[in-house]
Design a protein around this nucleic acid. Structure first.
Length: 294
DNA sequence: TTCCAGGCGAAGA
DNA sequence: TCTTCGCATGGA
């Protein structure tokens, strides 16, 4: 996609496959907030606002030297039409992709992603957002934009120094132990998240699952949403429902559902997962004709 | 009150 | 390898 840097912001021109409401509310990220002047989030400690104007996407408050980081965060260089072409032989996915036409997978900061998905275990999305927000205001760097105070997500060091009993004040419940343990591993260098990008999918997943609180589903989310492993296919309750209803038609372990999906959707399984999750979760009552697949 | 949520770890079969 | 159960919290 073409872009232009102007007036301390980026204009992504003719941005097809980018609908802010879908991107930020599809459940992949937990800190973007819909405010009166657009979606507000924090990238590299900087408050950023995103709006759609006509066919263009406006990303405000981006200094020129941050251009590459921001383009990468929003996955601007990826050919989503090519991915859709790859997946469109599947009738149900065609419907899902039509419904979530403007979805894209963000490249989130790996540590924030890791902690957020540890928080997600056996939790609801509004509660996950609340806890991640609490952790940020308790341990994150304060910043200001247009007279309003925001907090960046805490660094590994900041969370590693925290006491478990204090972290519990974020209302994270039994996950406080996991959060502190994971933060220490990252802060102390036992777990090098960036290096996992260079590993193959299965090796990186096994490495993540050594951390307490990270099982197969959480590991897949971290790999897909922050480490560019697009063969990852997180199987949660919703994805299990849609895979069982539409493709498998019998009870199967979550592990086997994931294997089935990776086999069916291949290197773009992660994108398929996002379209399926978004469509199925927002259209719980599927109709009969939805069930037909090629 | 009771149930359940973008699961996971531990224990037992 | 698979199944079962408990887990903090809070909304329905």
């Amino acid at each position: 996609m073409k872009y232009e840097w102007k007036d301390n912001g980026l204009i992504i021109e003719q941005a097809d496959n980018f609908e802010p409401a879908q991107v930020f509310d599809c459940g992949q990220c937990f800190r973007w907030v819909h405010e009166e002047d657009g979606y507000t989030g924090i990238i590299d400690d900087r408050v950023v606002k995103v709006n759609k104007r006509g066919e263009d996407i406006l990303i405000e408050n981006v200094p020129k030297e941050m251009t590459d980081d921001v383009l990468h965060y929003f996955d601007i260089d990826r050919n989503y039409n090519g991915i859709k072409e790859e997946l469109r032989s599947d009738a149900y996915l065609r419907k899902a992709m039509e419904y979530g036409n403007g979805l894209r997978i963000l490249n989130q900061e790996p540590f924030e992603c890791l902690i957020s998905y540890i928080v997600s275990a056996n939790n609801r999305i509004p509660q996950i957002k609340r806890v991640v927000d609490n952790l940020s205001s308790m341990y994150g760097k304060q910043t200001e934009h247009r007279g309003k105070v925001y907090y960046a997500f805490p660094t590994p060091n900041a969370l590693a120094d925290a006491q478990v009993c204090d972290v519990q004040n974020s209302r994270c419940g039994f996950r406080a132990d996991y959060i502190c343990d994971a933060a220490k591993r990252v802060a102390w260098g036992d777990l090098d998240l960036d290096s996992l990008r260079e590993r193959d999918y299965l090796t990186a997943k096994a490495e993540l699952m050594k951390v307490k609180g990270i099982g197969p589903k959480v590991a897949d989310c971290i790999l897909l949403y922050s480490l560019q492993k697009y063969e990852a296919f997180p199987v949660d309750v919703w994805v299990n429902r849609v895979m069982t209803d539409i493709y498998i038609h019998q009870k199967m372990s979550l592990k086997r559902v994931g294997e089935f999906a990776r086999d069916r959707f291949g290197r773009s399984a992660g994108f398929a997962q996002l379209y399926l999750f978004y469509y199925y979760r927002n259209n719980r009552g599927i109709t009969e004709d939805d069930g037909s697949i090629d």
